[in-house]
């Protein structure tokens, strides 16, 4: 989003016609490229969603979603992740005004919320496995663990990325390249939120429908 805002600011002042302006500045290119990558990531998730939808009832006599999903846990997970998106947004604002302390605080909050989300998710997985609902048990569980696990893996990567960015920020300050990457991170983090909302709806809410 920030990328789009910046892009507009640059263009309007300079030229009448966007498509004739010549090569875009680097931050626009980086942001746009990352958007494109995120789209491809969402396509990958849609394939996983499709497979989950096909296999959702193929429980092979094992435990079903109704028996396994704990709505309270999922509600907490959702709250944590949405909140982390909020703090991530705060961090973006701090970056735009180049405030170190606020940026670090935003990052720490985002990290903690993300980590808490991950911890809850792992606990959920552990509980299911303890009940014998392993991904090897049925096609439904294979699809469930793969879909939700992929999202969890993305969150893990995001957390590692955030730590790296904080290291870079403290070493280099608000260099252009660091700011570009932080913006990409925030795009990534919000995209994970969107995917989670879909998981929440399709897997957890629709999964407990009678």
């Amino acid at each position: 989003m920030n990328v789009a805002v910046e892009m507009d600011a640059v263009r309007r002042s300079a030229l009448l016609n966007l498509s004739e302006a010549g090569p875009a500045p680097k931050r626009v290119i980086a942001g746009f490229g990352f958007w494109t990558f995120l789209l491809s990531d969402i396509v990958m998730f849609s394939a996983l969603f499709a497979s989950y939808a096909v296999l959702a009832k193929a429980t092979a006599g094992g435990l079903t979603g109704v028996q396994l999903f704990d709505q309270r846990n999922v509600a907490m997970e959702t709250a944590l992740l949405l909140l982390s998106s909020y703090t991530c947004g705060m961090m973006s604002l701090a970056i735009n005004s180049r405030r170190y302390l606020a940026t670090f605080l935003g990052a720490v909050a985002t990290f903690l919320l993300g980590a808490a989300f991950l911890a809850l998710e792992l606990r959920e997985f552990q509980g299911m496995i303890a009940l014998g609902a392993t991904p090897q048990r049925s096609a439904f569980l294979s699809a469930f663990f793969t879909l939700v696990g992929s999202h969890g893996l993305h969150v893990t990567v995001g957390l590692a990325w955030l730590v790296l960015m904080m290291v870079q920020l403290s070493l280099r300050g608000f260099q252009d390249v660091v700011v570009r990457r932080l913006h990409c991170f925030s795009l990534f983090w919000h995209a994970l939120d969107i995917i989670w909302v879909l998981i929440f709806t399709i897997v957890y809410l629709m999964g407990v429908l009678p």
Binding site: S40, V43, S51, P135, Q136, A139, T146
Partner: peptide, 30 residues
């Protein structure tokens, strides 16, 4: 299109390496 292939091969790899059941003949695979 390629992300679909990536996801698909990931599923087949999970079947082959970790005993998942996306496409197996048993346990509801399709």
């Amino acid at each position: 299109a390629f992300p679909v292939l990536t996801a698909l091969f990931a599923m087949l790899l999970l079947d082959r390496y970790l005993g998942f059941h996306f496409f197996t003949v048993d346990a509801g695979g399709n």
